[in-house]
Design a protein around this nucleic acid. Structure first.
Lengths: 231, 231
DNA sequence: ACCTGAACACCGTTCAAGT
DNA sequence: ACCTGAACACCGTTCAAGT
């Protein structure tokens, strides 16, 4: 047994646990993206062997489920610190702040939306988050039926992110126009016309898809206003 | 060289091509989900070896990019058959039908939304789709600026799907309540209360996430109505 | 030019064996 | 009970060699 190995096992005196595995997964994803989270890399981070992980998580899918839980727990902690009135018309601002707070957590973990999108199982933390949002809407006077529709209408936006299917200009850093679009300009009259008028350089574009703060809030307010009108 | 091998090469007399590869990928995904699309399985479907594919596509990522293009081409063909008035107030119904038509194509390929969500590069067919939607909104009298906000607000909904983060009851087939939720009922008063009132069994739930037609249309109309009001 | 066999560097995961 | 080494069955992809 080499010195290096001995040092490593001394360092990892703290026993493995489901919780340590999940925290390590979040750390690795924050540093190198979700693709960097492999069972072997995870074990390395914890000073153990890949096979040891299987004593604490059933498989990799369960690691990703756990990561969703961990991120949403972070969100629940953040929204728990909010203390806004929720009765009557105040529901809208309370819901708005709750969702924008969730978004701030997501912005710290830009890889997270893709993981959320890939999961199909029910996360207990996600259930708790939605329950809180429902509570705000019930206080606002919404019927259960309308609440139900609203949850579906929000979709992922309730948790602070929305899926953008294309970035209508160059990457977030470069101001260069998209070469694919330049080549097709003749067949995209409305898109080209729009972009000529709307300067779409957004230094803060992030979260994987182009999905900046102002656009997120526009879409969110469209939904909140529409729901408020049907309250 | 065996008879079987000889038969196979005779069958695949038609040479490989990017187009054949992409069509095969869609076929395999339709039959076995997107995970079934591997380079080796793709080659098998085409009566070739995995390595032969690399003469027609750069790598697997490009296969998935091409699949998005292929599905959106199918959508563009379908919406191309629509012939609705678009001027003035008619924009809303035209946009609505365009989006619901896209959704019908997506429903034939339930694995597609996840693939769309995972891509970051610009698909020419997606650009063409959005250009058409923009055209409808311009006819409706929207400014380029408002059009731009609208595209972001729609997000993936413009292409007929939306991400649902949890299914608030059992699976689409079973009427069983979610065991995770039953165990947590005490901490989820609003969720449990809502579901007790709203019978959430939806035999047509599909598209991977619970995202049925009525809920999709509710969310879509919320956006369309809100936009129309700001026109 | 197009196609392929063998090989490489990775995965997630199983199993039998160690302490 | 917890951990691990070796091995298995898969990936995507490279390379040198075939026609």
């Amino acid at each position: 047994m080499s010195l290096a190995t001995r040092g490593k096992s001394a360092e990892s005196r703290t026993p493995l646990s489901r919780d340590r595995v999940l925290r390590a997964a979040v750390k690795i994803a924050d540093e190198g993206g979700i693709a960097a989270v492999t069972m072997r890399r995870l074990a390395e981070e914890l000073g153990a062997e890949a096979m040891s992980l299987y004593h604490h998580v059933a498989n990799k899918d369960q690691v990703l489920d756990g990561v969703v839980d961990a991120i949403t727990a972070e969100i629940n902690q953040a929204v728990g610190r909010l203390a806004l009135p929720t009765r009557g018309a105040a529901w809208k601002e309370a819901a708005r702040q709750r969702i924008l707070t969730a978004r701030q957590v997501m912005l710290r973990h830009p890889w997270a939306p893709a993981v959320f999108a890939s999961r199909t199982t029910t996360s207990t933390e996600v259930l708790l988050y939605y329950d809180g949002l429902l509570g705000i809407m019930r206080d606002g006077g919404f019927s259960n039926d309308l609440c139900h529709h609203a949850m579906h209408a929000f979709g992922s936006r309730a948790l602070g992110f929305s899926q953008e299917l294309f970035t209508p200009s160059g990457g977030p850093s470069t101001g260069e126009p998209d070469p694919v679009m330049v080549a097709m300009a003749a067949r995209l009259p409305h898109l080209v016309g729009m972009l000529a008028e709307v300067v779409h350089d957004d230094p803060d574009a992030t979260l994987g898809w182009c999905d900046d703060q102002a656009e997120f809030e526009f879409g969110l307010d469209l939904l909140l206003d529409g729901l408020d009108r049907r309250r």
